[in-house]
Design a protein around this nucleic acid. Sequence first.
DNA 1: CGATTCCCCTGATAGC
DNA 2: TGCTATCAGGGGAATC
Length: 277
Amino acid sequence: MPELPEVETIKRGLKKSLVGLTILGVKTDTPKMILKIPFKRFQNEVKWKKVIDIQRKGKLLVINLNNNQNLIFHLKISGRILLRDYGAPVDEYTRIVFKLSKNKELRFADLRKFGWVRLAPANKMGEMLFFKEIGVDVLSKEFTFSRFLETLKNRRGGIKKFLMDQKIIAGIGNIYANEALWKARIHPERKIESLNEREKENLYKAILSIIKKAVRLRGTSVDQYVDVSGEKGEFEKELKVYGRVGKSCYRCDQAVVRIVVSGRGTFFCPKCQHLKQ
DNA sequence: CGATTCCCCTGATAGC
DNA sequence: TGCTATCAGGGGAATC
């Protein structure tokens, strides 16, 4: 599941090899994955445009084109962005192919077809609702401890749901929410209003250290995620609770438990992540 | 207006 | 063995 560290790894890969290339054409067998405009128009809009930069906002990948347009990708659960030589072996689940100069191809593969791409005018992107509603990025300099406290202020409800709400903080998905809560020893169903200052600080530090480490290790490949070359990430071996149901906690030996929190599989240690405070 | 449920899609797994 | 039913999962839309 591409969350911040995975999309950041893809962004860095594309910065190295995609910037400067020109889009020669687009093909798809899944036009549904192109939002807002008909495929024909999309084709015309991107043809002959040059890639000038790559950005990331939360889990969104943004490719800046030289006509003041941005290509925005959301990889959802099973999306992959692959940069290949023209004619390289077919990547499974390829849905959209951008043919590029220098004999390259950008392939958007997605087993589940939940991912999408859309065009947005660069100068108006800040005004677009879907972009305006994205919260503070975990890796941005604005994501300080005091900003974190501010986002928690006057909010009620479960802490895990809060962490995964992209409108508040952008970039944390299911894997890293589970991991950060384990590291901070906080039960995923703890109410925000029950957390004391020390716990909030532990959680803030846990989020930053885990996300940064996952970026260094090029992401987590528990599902479909790979980088632009098709290589898996290395963070999987660092996972402390995610997917470890029934296995013993690395801290206290208690069996890791799986529950469902707001519709998502949630893993935690019932002994060192206690509910009451 | 906030909280919950449904839905998109496919492959893996369970159950018979 | 081989079929069918169930489930996971991010986030937008519909519904409660």
